[in-house]
């Protein structure tokens, strides 16, 4: 059957077997392999994507059931090749070790922050409590989300400040590092 939805801002029209899961549509039909499959019983969160802005498990949704929906995957959140503050914080603060839970974790965190720009630690933990990470013990994941929030708060404070003052402060702090671009697909692919 034909399923049409928007994925990462692009309209997509796919001819799919009705039993196709959203996860399969993304990974196999659209080759968006950033969304991972970690379990088969909807209990690990590795496949978390946003469906109409809400977190959802792509392994537990029929692709056909997402007809007309707006879907966002890990590949779709960077802007102009620049990773989001959340993605950069996961890299910087040790929130990603093996990286396999990371896309789902980042998407769950993004869903939280999109609706709540100032969450408590408890709210962050609650929002991530459907996502299993086997590497970090979650400590550095929580720190990553906090760091992203701090960066956003810093940016907001910068924006609120008179421009000259902010410029002066930036000059005093030295040159800014060049933006870190998302790396291309592994050469092994």
């Amino acid at each position: 059957m034909i399923t049409a939805f928007t994925v990462n801002g692009q309209p997509r029209r796919l001819e799919l077997d009705p039993a196709t899961l959203l996860l399969e549509a993304l990974r196999e039909h659209l080759r968006l392999t950033g969304t991972k499959c970690g379990c088969d019983d909807s209990s690990c969160g590795a496949c978390t994507v946003l469906v109409n802005g809400q977190p959802a498990l792509a392994c537990t949704l029929l692709a056909a059931g997402c007809d007309g929906a707006d879907i966002t995957t890990i590949e779709g959140i960077a802007t102009d090749g620049r990773l989001t503050a959340l993605q950069r914080a996961f890299g910087r603060m040790g929130g990603a070790q093996c990286g396999f839970c990371t896309p789902g974790m980042v998407m769950a965190a993004k869903a939280l922050l999109d609706g709540n720009p100032d969450p408590s630690d408890g709210e962050i933990q609650a929002a991530l409590s459907g996502n299993i990470c086997r590497c970090t013990g979650y400590v550095q994941i929580l720190a990553s989300v906090r760091a992203a929030l701090a960066e956003a708060a810093g940016a907001a404070a910068d924006a609120a400040r008179p421009k000259a003052a902010a410029d002066a402060q930036r000059r005093a702090a030295g040159p800014t590092p060049p933006p870190q671009a998302a790396e291309p697909q592994s050469a092994h692919g």
Binding site: I74, E75, F90, G91, G99, P103, S186
Partner: peptide, 8 residues
Amino acid sequence: APRKTSGA
């Protein structure tokens, strides 16, 4: 890390 956090 960018390979992991970007999904690429």
